[in-house]
Nucleic acid binder design. Structure first.
Length: 655
RNA sequence: GCGGGCGUGGCGGAACUGGUAGACGCGCAAGAUUUAGGUUCUUGUAUCGAAAGGUGUGGGGGUUCAAGUCCCUUCGCCCGCACCA
């Protein structure tokens, strides 16, 4: 394939090793990147072809199973396969068959393994007189390892399937009670100098021997391939290369950058619009100044998304980055994106920062300190009988059946899938915003489920959020205007202390929940606080100063969730400033200190009573108080064998 | 097949380092207000049971005074990669 590639493979090891330093990334994303890079340790081994000076080099992670080898298989794209095909028409046909197969949907045929038996043989490196046949096989990938393997059917599923199909030897070389193929570790048998060794030692021993004989060595293989960045489309950054007949491929000099795309472009023909534009590509060679043409491919869009966040640190129109801005802003403290970017975008960005560092442009390695991946919003899909997709708002439900709103015809209800325009299973938030307002919509969405999880969209419950915010509105409107005393009364009653305790608990919980992206818990916490405050006002209506004090703190807590409403209500209470400028409330531990503590009393692990005791009571006191409980005594038929008291937590009588 | 995640009421979901399972809400039920419906308010709502009490975090087993939480095993669902040697 023709095109430009970025040599991300050079960074494979670094990108892999540094994954472990990303402590604030989801485990899932990290494993996906690890698998994508796919580092594996093994060996390369040369097999010499009989009656020829040629040889085949294979890659294996299990050199220890070499004595079980019963065939060699090479990819249809392998150099040797092509060489064979020149003389052997049947081989050529087979290769063509494989190529067609890989172009079509492979899924259906995937399980099937096909091979073509060539008339070539190789000799086994350690078993004199043993010759192995070379097959061309459809399941060998050219992009991985060397595009060639030795097949050890007893200890590899694929080789086993293949050997069964073509009646090849299946010789176990690892001791096992299990059915073949056995892919685990074990003690080696039928393996000459590897006999009686375990897998780890056998691998090491085998590689040593191969190296001594100069026919193989230790080798590390990666799954990751270089990043093909060429695209044949208009919407992308032009690749800054000029093709000159004399000088070859010449990079566009920095002072001529950036290259702008032409504005007078048409899309009426097939192919790359830049390529058939009449003038754009024609230019001069920067070296010899003769006529030359521009590269008409453009960069992959991932190219730009790999560094935009660094660009965003500064508006400077002349420079991509400024040192001070990068130093100040980078790396990104909190990055948010969908899981679908787990490997491509997020790996490319990590690669880009390193590449830029290597050319001394910026001094950043990891672009994103903390990563949150939000889940996908899903919804049921609907189709007409003629298989046309329908929007959920075109549907109504009756007796558990779905019908079209206009035609009243029955509708097919499909799977619940991630929302996508093509399947029309999308809900337009605009409708919700029109009916309930943006604040209600936001509050409702936050309350539903944590953002890192997939969720099924449902409108049910939005009225609940609506009700709550209405209640809040009325509550604050009922408070006197403009009392902006932020000082607390000196002598607090127990009721007042309790209210302040609840307030501070809520500040703590809400803050923590927001920090951890558990917005649903934050919503629950502010709701609880309001419920308490609401009841408090009914009972202690005269206590205006404290009620307003707590209400103001409460409004700051709920402000990020319902900013418009909170600002309005704040204005009602406190004339001096806007709520957006208020600092986040701090937890005052003085009000959270309790002097009494509820403790469950268990008998044999079952809760039988709950007592309230002074905090930090001695174990003796706790036990004494616990033993006064009727419902506990009822179960203490025998004298307890053991009494477990965890102060301030639990007491358990074991009988 | 490999890797990752999840499984808790009718539903969405809570539960800090093992220590009162079901917070908060939706829904539902009953009642109050209302001339109807809606709104609003109160109460109830895991489950079996009249009660006492029993049972309950997908199933089975284990560790522990104590398990949603830790360990083993098994089932189901979702996502990612997929013939990676």
């Amino acid at each position: 394939m023709n095109g430009w590639f970025l040599k991300i493979s050079d960074f494979a090891d670094e990108l892999l090793n540094e994954i472990d330093s990303l402590s604030e990334w989801p485990e899932k994303v990290k494993t996906m990147q690890k698998n994508w890079i796919g580092k594996s340790f093994g060996a390369s081994i040369k097999f010499f072809i009989e009656n020829s000076s040629d040889h085949i080099e294979i890659f294996t992670t299990r050199p220890d199973t070499i004595f079980g080898a019963s065939f060699i298989a090479i990819s249809p794209q392998h150099r040797l396969a092509k060489k064979i095909a020149k003389k052997d028409f049947k081989a050529a046909d087979f290769i063509k068959f494989c190529e067609n197969q890989s172009n079509k949907e492979i899924d259906i045929e995937k399980a099937d393994k096909h091979g073509y038996e060539t008339n070539l043989l190789v000799s086994h490196p350690f078993k004199k007189n043993v010759k192995l046949k070379i097959f061309i096989a459809n399941f060998i990938l050219m992009d991985y390892g060397t595009g060639a393997i030795f097949g050890c059917p007893a200890h590899d599923q694929r080789d086993y399937d293949f050997a069964k199909k073509y009646s090849l030897d299946i010789l176990p070389v690892i001791q096992t009670e299990e059915n073949l193929p056995y892919t685990g570790d074990g003690i080696h048998i039928n393996s000459g100098f590897l006999d009686n060794l375990n897998t780890k030692d056998a691998i090491k021993f085998c590689i040593d021997k191969l190296r001594k004989l100069n026919i193989g060595e230790e080798k590390i293989s990666y799954r990751i391939r270089d990043w093909g960045v060429s695209r044949q489309r208009y919407w992308g950054c032009p690749i800054p290369i000029i093709f000159c007949n004399d000088c070859g491929e010449v990079p566009v000099p920095e002072e001529q950058l950036p290259i702008y795309l032409p504005n007078d472009i048409t899309f009426d023909k097939k192919g790359n619009p830049l390529d058939y534009h009449p003038t754009w590509k024609h230019t001069k060679c920067p070296i010899c100044h003769k006529k030359a043409v521009r590269e008409t491919d453009t960069f992959d869009t991932f190219f730009e998304s790999s560094w935009y966040f660094a660009r965003f640190t500064d508006l400077n129109p002349k420079k991509a980055f400024t040192e001070e801005a990068i130093k100040y802003w980078m790396p990104v403290d909190q990055y948010i994106g969908g899981v679908e970017h787990a490997v491509m975008h997020l790996l490319y960005s990590r690669f880009f920062m390193r590449a830029l560092k290597r050319v001394n442009t910026i001094d950043v390695e990891e672009p994103f300190i903390s990563l949150q991946t939000q889940g996908m919003v899903c919804h049921q899909t609907f189709k007409t009988k003629k298989q046309k997709w329908l929007f959920p708002n075109e549907i109504f439900k009756k007796d558990n059946m779905f019908f079209h709103l206009n035609t009243k015809e029955p509708v097919e209800a499909g799977r619940i899938e991630k929302m996508s325009k093509s399947k029309k299973n999308v809900v337009d938030p605009q409708q919700i915003i029109e009916n309930f307002g943006a604040d209600t919509a936001r509050f409702f969405m936050l309350s539903d489920s944590p953002p890192n999880r997939d969720m099924e969209w449902s409108n049910s419950g939005i009225e609940g959020s609506w009700r709550f915010l209405n209640k809040l509105w009325k509550f604050v409107q009922g408070l006197p205007k403009g009392i902006s005393n932020d000082k607390l009364p000196l002598n607090l009653s127990n009721n007042q202390k309790e209210l302040l305790k609840i307030l501070n608990e809520s500040i703590m919980e809400t803050t923590k929940a927001i920090d951890e992206f558990h917005f649903n818990i934050a919503v629950a916490s502010v709701r609880s606080l309001f419920n308490y405050l609401y009841t408090y006002k009914i009972k202690n209506d005269v206590d205006k100063t404290l009620i307003i004090y707590v209400t103001k703190k409460f409004l700051i807590l709920i402000n990020p969730m319902v900013p418009h409403l909170a600002e309005e209500l704040w204005d009602h209470l406190a004339k001096e400033q806007i709520i957006a400028n208020q600092s986040w409330p701090k937890v005052d531990l003085n009000y959270m200190q309790k002097d009494r503590q509820k403790m469950p009393i268990q008998v044999n692990g079952k809760v039988r009573a709950v007592i309230e005791i002074p905090i930090n009571s001695t174990k003796k006191d706790i036990e004494r108080i616990a033993l006064r409980e009727k419902n506990v005594l009822k179960f203490l038929i025998n004298k307890p064998k053991k009494v477990i008291i965890i102060p301030n937590r639990v007491i358990n009588f074991v009988i």
